[in-house]
Design a protein around this nucleic acid. Structure first.
Lengths: 195, 195
DNA sequence: TAAAAGTCTTAAACTAGTTCATTTTTTTTC
DNA sequence: GAAAAAAAATGAACTAGTTTAAGACTTTTA
């Protein structure tokens, strides 16, 4: 089996067991996608065509506010799922941009194939139930941190939770994720280094 | 059928169709719970025993930070699901309190019955997939608002999204949800009223 | 129904985080 | 590998939101 297919099957197998036939069927529903560094996987206004699984590289998911300031919703690296679930489900235009910060490779499942998947292999209901459950837990935590922690605390949390991502992204993008300006991010880091 | 049971079955029927037998089976897995105003449904340190559906009343879900300041994660009224999904799933102690702000009635599903449910009526995988998907969409949005909107904008958003909840909660609790002090909440409201 | 407890308002002094402007350092591109 | 572009650092002036404190208003409780 191809490396990227092994990666996605391993990811799914953490939650459900698939027969060889089911694995093949599932893989047949996927689309391979490559995006070069600095190019867009999707842009605000698009109706999201796929949910993505990253097999190589790094991407950022973000919105632009009225001032044009980017606010980063998530970073996605190998073995992560990403996309804009709201636009994917409702088929309404997205408010998000997804841009590669490294040359990246992804597997996408289209909305039509996503719907088909549940008919063909109902076990995937369980997989997505568990995947969404986990995402939900981490977004609940993140939204609580947003209202209860200082910027410095959120930075420390991020480093603790995503040690493997910190070194792959710019300080500026991290500021956009934490919810502060790059200048203040710089101050926080220099303060921590001074101690 | 009892009113509370009708309410929960209607809620579920938005996503999946159940036979009469399945409805009865499902209802048999539920526990009825009443909590008086100002009393706790659960407290930090508890391992969450149930996921709850509210049939009457209003509750707040919150944490206390190191200073003892409450940060409100959600308000739950009739036809809402609540609990601490992280503690429920991982069986680790919760960091949340859930307290009734009105005399309330709930239906709870225990962890054991939740697991049993998927064996007995696999269709519920789909129901929870869709329930979590919706919650996820709204928490993604909330965590983005936390990092990109001002307190005043978050207040306006809240009123727009939950017009039926605003009048049932105190300004102080709303401040705890928005992520600001009650004093600043008061300023925002008096500023808006002045305009 | 009076007392107690909690909520809301206002204001002054404060602090976390922003804005704007400039310089240095690093990365990208040709 | 030089030039251009982007990221990072620093600092001064600013603003959104906090803290503390005190008084008025409302709700709860005995």
């Amino acid at each position: 089996m191809e490396y990227s297919h092994k990666l996605i099957i391993d990811n799914i197998s953490r939650f459900i067991d698939l027969t060889e036939l089911e694995k093949q069927k599932y893989i047949s529903l996927l689309t391979e996608i490559k995006v070069n560094k600095k190019t867009y996987l999707m842009q605000a206004g698009d109706i999201t065509k796929y949910e993505y699984f990253i097999t190589k590289g790094c991407l950022k998911v973000y919105t632009l506010d009225v001032d044009g300031t980017p606010h980063i919703s998530m970073f996605a690296v190998e073995d992560y799922w990403t996309g804009d679930i709201a636009s994917f489900i409702t088929k309404q235009p997205s408010r998000y941009f997804i841009r590669a910060t490294e040359d990246s490779e992804l597997l996408g499942i289209s909305r039509a194939n996503y719907d088909l998947l549940f008919q063909e292999i109902p076990k995937f209901e369980r997989f997505y139930r568990m995947l969404y459950q986990r995402s939900l837990i981490s977004y609940i935590r993140r939204s609580n941190h947003g209202i209860s922690l200082t910027a410095e605390e959120r930075y420390i949390e991020f480093k603790k939770k995503y040690p493997n991502i910190v070194n792959r992204i710019t300080q500026k993008d991290l500021a956009g994720y934490i919810g502060i300006t790059p200048e203040f991010m710089s101050k926080i880091i220099s303060k921590i280094n001074r101690l």
